[in-house]
Write a protein that binds this DNA or RNA. Structure first.
Lengths: 350, 350
DNA sequence: CTGAAAGCGCTTACAG
DNA sequence: CTGAAAGCGCTTACAG
């Protein structure tokens, strides 16, 4: 009599609906409710009870409590994404890809640390205490993976050279780097500078090494004195370029390759201030192909990396592991390739 | 005898260390372990037992299992951030701010939906089933908040007009919008177009309304026929501008205001293609002041919004609620202001 | 100050 | 097909 509110509104707010309440309403045990709620009725629950329970669930607005469920099962439905830096548009895309592949069955928990730094053993413990269904680890170093020593499902993203630790999805940045070297060489550049990222992530070493090798093979000189590095930050990069440019210019440098587009934006910005004409006086290129590289003036030549696909594939692989499937290809590599824009297209291509 | 491995390495990997194991080692009950692990020993545990337990915890590498803990307490240590779109550099900064204020005590769970869409009742239930310690909701609509009807701690971000639902942190976008109108008026513009976002988020309505009002007050005409809208996407915006420009030009439009910098990038891009000189032929401005707005050529005039502070403040407020404190100021508003750059700085300022 | 015990909500052998 | 019961790991009155 005191339940004057319409039943459509699933229970009064605040009062948690439990399996016991559903069981009582449907006239069955909580075991049966659990079976129905989890779709494990196959040959274990009568049609009659299935529909009773379904109705009770609908009427009460019951949702399986994931804390209780996780405790009983031993794992939660949480997938943890460990990443060193998310204030990066590239990373936003990776996340979007992960979300897409994970779907509604898993919740994505972000474990972020200071830009460029990696979680310590402490943080890891706290994460593992959540009993995640799986782990996605972006751009880790070996030390971190040693620390981790988890036995659960795990997939690495952008972790070249660490394939021994877990199934991985990597980017073939070397390919794009070589294309870039070839492009600059064929445009007539003979002396090139390299603006690297200070982050010790493996991908940056590969970008640089592949570029330097191909450049050397094509007769392009990248003097060690013309290789500098800064944090991934427009301002820091602009400053570093401003400081280095006079020497570079004097040494006959006509192009600068940046480890990320973000670095390149700094160069573009400072070049404008300093009156350096791009691309005629200096060609500039980056990696990542962020959305704004198509918009800057001139457009920024950049090695395109499939961020969303990286996240998508990693999520798919992880799902496979969580569901206990054998992965057909534990190691995936996604292509990269150079997008040429105005920042390297000289009128005087050789 | 069979434990030949060094004890420093906290237990053998894979074997979960429980409070019972710690209790056994320290020669106390699990109740005491719990008290020590949670720092609730004040007048309840002897110094002696405290140090025994601490030592056992260290030796075994015990970490409180958060699933068990959450079930017993009734809430988890998870803070859920509900947001309509994260593939947006603006949002990456908001997240960084949230992380900073939340610290190590809480885990940040991202609940993302399709760009521009909001979670349905279904998704909400699944989130609430995690028993979050608190909710952070970015740019919600009233319908969503009605659905939510949660009683737990919740803080809204960028939710102007919805202060009745929960403590909020908002951005004073109207202020920047008015500054922008004043700036364009004083630069001599008399006919201006407006490129809006199709997302029905309140902030966009406020940006537009405030701009239109101030423009009108200053004798600047924004013909309804010159107000169009697209998704927040460089390409979509570029296309829309390409289609609209001939008419705008004919009608004497000399400036276009974009609801976001992302829209503005599309305009800049297309303007270059179409040979429209910026700012002389057309002035362009946006909102958000994304990092690349300082770098584009010309630099993009934009209303700066403090993204990181938005996340930071919201996180702080939420912590307050979770800890049961009364908020001194349940409603916070952060300033916005116009940053003038080359895209609106005509040589011929009146 | 301390520990035995109940309970959080669920899942899963197990016996019927 | 069904339900009583044990158990997941922890926290918190409660009695001592």
């Amino acid at each position: 009599m005191d339940s004057s509110r319409p039943l459509k509104q699933p229970s009064r707010p605040g009062a948690r609906v439990t399996a016991a309440m559903v069981a009582a309403r449907a006239g069955v045990s909580t075991a049966t409710v659990s079976l129905v709620a989890n779709g494990k009725t196959r040959g274990r629950v009568s049609e009659d009870n299935i529909s009773r329970v379904r109705q009770a669930i609908a009427e009460l607005g019951y949702v399986v409590d994931s804390v209780g469920s996780s405790l009983a099962r031993g794992v939660s439905s949480i997938v943890v994404l460990v990443a060193p830096d998310i204030s990066n548009p590239f990373f936003a895309k990776v996340i979007a890809g992960v979300r897409e592949s994970l779907g509604a069955d898993f919740q994505l928990l972000l474990s972020v640390t200071e830009a460029g730094e990696f979680p310590r053993a402490d943080d890891i413990r706290r994460i593992l205490a959540l009993r995640p269904a799986g782990l996605l680890v972006d751009a880790p170093d070996a030390a971190f993976l040693e620390d981790l020593s988890t036995t659960g499902p795990m997939v690495l993203l952008d972790a070249p050279g660490l394939e021994a630790y877990a199934p991985s999805v990597n980017l073939d940045v070397a390919h794009g780097a070589r294309e870039l070297a070839a492009h600059l060489a064929s445009s007539g550049h003979r002396r090139v500078a390299y603006l690297d990222s200070v982050t010790g992530t493996a991908t940056f070493a590969i970008r640089r090494t592949a570029f330097l090798e191909e450049a050397a093979a094509r007769g392009v000189t990248v003097d060690p004195a013309h290789q500098i590095s800064t944090t991934i930050d427009v301002g820091a990069s602009a400053e570093a370029f401003a400081a280095a440019w006079p020497q570079w210019q004097q040494a006959g440098v006509t192009a600068v390759v940046c480890a990320t587009d973000t670095h390149a934006y700094g160069v573009l910005q400072e070049a404008r201030v300093a009156g350096v004409r791009i691309p005629d006086e200096l060609a500039v290129a980056g990696f990542d192909d962020l959305p704004y590289s198509a918009t800057s003036n001139p457009g920024l030549s950049s090695v395109h990396l499939p961020a969303a696909r990286l996240g998508l594939k990693a999520g798919e692989q992880l799902r496979g592991l969580i569901e206990g499937r054998d992965l057909e290809q534990p190691q995936l590599t996604l292509e990269s390739s150079l997008i040429v824009r105005g920042s390297t297209e000289r009128a005087t291509a050789s």
